[in-house]
Computed example of a mutant assay.
Amino acid sequence: MSSRLSAVAIFAALLGFAAPALAADVSAFDPDKDGTIDLAEAQAAAAKKFDMLDPDKDGTLDARELNGLLTAAELKAADPDSDGTLDKKEYLAVVAARFKAADPDAEGTIDAKELSSPAGASLATLLK
């Protein structure tokens, strides 16, 4: 089934269409299965992602380990101690800021529609 979904996504991209159903997979970050992501769920997913991105297990991510998830300017802005790396607390602060941007109604949850927005997609890159 995943190859069929991939084929649909490729075909849609070739035609210039987004594949919102694929981009808005809330269930990947929704352990309580309520159809939305709250900040705690987003940060739990982000913490797992952080650990995956930290192969040397030094507790920080540098630009190389972030592998393009943040631009140089975003990394600099998210790095209050200016050491060129993000620790988990700093990474989760970026997640919180992107969560807030993806939650325009400020209800504290993100649904599939919000996750498929540009701000939601930006958040999702830090979670998966």
Score class of each variant (00 low, 15 high):
Ala101Tyr: 06
Asp87Met: 03
Ala101His: 05
Ser82Val: 06
Asp54Phe: 03
Val26Gln: 03
Ala45Glu: 02
Val94Glu: 06
Ser122Phe: 04
Val95Asn: 07
Leu126Trp: 07
Ala101Asp: 14
Lys57Tyr: 05
Ser122Asn: 07
Leu127His: 01
Ala40Ile: 12
Leu66Lys: 04
Lys113Phe: 09
Pro118Leu: 01
Thr71Leu: 04
Arg64Met: 10
Ala124Tyr: 02
Pro80Ala: 07
Val26His: 02
Lys57Thr: 11
Ala23Glu: 08
Lys113Thr: 15
Thr85Phe: 13
Leu126Tyr: 12
Ser82Phe: 06
Phe29Cys: 00
Ala112Gly: 12
Lys89Gly: 04
Ser116Asp: 15
Asp51Val: 12
Gly35Cys: 07
Leu86Ala: 08
Ala77Cys: 03
Gly35Thr: 07
Pro104Ile: 08
Ser116Ile: 09
Asp105Gly: 10
Pro31Tyr: 00
Tyr91Lys: 11
Ala119Arg: 10
Ala119Ser: 11
Gly35Gln: 09
Ala72Phe: 09
Leu126Val: 14
Ala72Met: 10
Leu61Arg: 00
Asp51Leu: 15
Asp32His: 08
Ala97Pro: 00
Gly35Lys: 07
Glu65His: 01
Asp103Phe: 04
Asp105Trp: 06
Ala93Glu: 13
Leu115Cys: 05
Ala42Phe: 01
Lys49Arg: 11
Leu127Tyr: 06
Ser82Thr: 06
Ala101Met: 08
Gly108Cys: 11
Asp25Val: 10
Ile37Leu: 02
Ala124Gly: 01
Leu53Val: 07
Leu66Trp: 06
Phe29Arg: 02
Gly59Arg: 07
Tyr91Leu: 10
Gly84Lys: 14
Asp38Met: 03
